[in-house]
């Protein structure tokens, strides 16, 4: 199953990926990271289709897509 990994020290919690994901797999964490932002996370199991849309919109190159 494809998946994404979010680099929490790069993510600034802008939320652009949450809207770009065509499957709405991404949500914002309710705990903050060491950099003080609420980072994105892959919230649902078996949801990601590995399309890479979140990577495209992520300003901080915080997302790696695996397939």
């Amino acid at each position: 199953m494809p998946k994404i990994e979010v680099n929490e020290t790069r993510c600034k919690g802008c939320q652009l990926c949450t809207k770009a994901c065509p499957k709405q797999c991404i949500e914002i964490s309710d705990t903050f990271s060491t950099t003080g932002y609420y980072p994105a996370k892959l919230a649902k199991q078996d949801c990601c289709i590995g399309c890479g849309m979140c990577f495209q919109v992520c300003p901080d190159i915080a997302i790696t897509v695996f397939r």
Binding site: P2, K3, T9, R10, G50, G52, F55, P59, D60, I61, I63, T64, V65, F66, R67
Partner: peptide, 16 residues
């Protein structure tokens, strides 16, 4: 499983 995205090598590692 392989990463299909990567940070371009023409960028440094510096956080924007």
């Amino acid at each position: 499983m392989n990463a299909i995205t990567k940070r371009p090598s023409s960028l440094t590692q510096a956080q924007f």
